[in-house]
């Protein structure tokens, strides 16, 4: 077990370092190795989808066996998954019937959830004022209102001239743009140190103590 953990760490560090070198120096052999390793990773990730589907089916079979709450939905999920999987194997993912299946089932369901989310968010915004009444929350909601009013046409009134022409572009492109860049720089630095911890073997998502 210890040897397995050690080997995993050594392999992860060595492959990680080679891929990193391939990104910084687009010269052989680093570049070629990087391309090969990333292609292997893509193939493994594709296979992981099959394993993940196995995991999904196992979870729902366990639910159905235990007659847990909502196990009927689990049965429906397994049935739909198998049917779609077999249809995909038979027709291929680009077949018009598969595209229709996606457009007729998956797309409307996700659109409905998006619609549900807008209602949830409106309610959450009001709840936020109850839970966390501070300057940031007020600025947050004020900005949301300004951008919404500046974007959408109001019934009978149409576009709000000053908000739509000047305030909204200023808020969304200057203030929000600057803030977003600051956050993204912070995220990039966090990404760098997270990657380094994995390279050093301090974070081992692949298991081991």
């Amino acid at each position: 077990m210890k040897l397995r953990g050690l080997l995993s760490t050594v392999f992860a560090m060595a492959f990680g370092l080679l891929v990193l070198l391939g990104y910084f120096f687009e010269v052989q052999p680093f570049y070629g190795l990087r391309v090969v390793f990333v292609e292997w990773a893509v193939i493994l990730a594709g296979f992981a989808v099959l394993v993940g589907l196995g995991n999904l089916v196992t979870v729902h079979i366990k639910k159905i066996r235990a007659r847990e709450k909502g196990s009927v939905y689990g049965l429906l999920l397994i049935f739909a998954l198998l049917m779609t999987f077999l249809a995909g194997l038979a027709w291929g993912p680009d077949h018009p019937n598969m595209v229709l299946l996606f457009r007729a089932v998956q797309f409307p369901v996700e659109a409905s959830l998006m619609a549900l989310l807008t209602v949830s968010l409106a309610y959450a915004s009001i709840r936020m004022l109850r839970r966390r009444l501070n300057l940031f929350s007020i600025v947050f909601l004020g900005t949301v209102l300004v951008v919404l009013l500046g974007t959408a046409s109001l019934p009978l009134l149409g576009d709000v001239p000053f908000l739509g022409d000047w305030v909204r572009p200023f808020v969304s492109q200057v203030i929000a743009g600057a803030g977003a860049r600051g956050i993204l720089i912070g995220v990039a630095l966090g990404t760098l140190t997270t990657g380094l911890r994995v390279l050093f073997g301090a974070d081992r998502p692949y298991g081991g103590k």
């Binding site: 949830s120 936020m128 977003a180 956050i183 912070g186 995220v187 140190t193 911890r197």
Partner: peptide
Amino acid sequence: DSLPAQAILYASAQDPLIGEELFAVG
């Protein structure tokens, strides 16, 4: 790490972490 998600989580989560605070969890 996603900006749209951060905006939504700021409004809807009890305790949102902003910006790169995700990377401070460890």
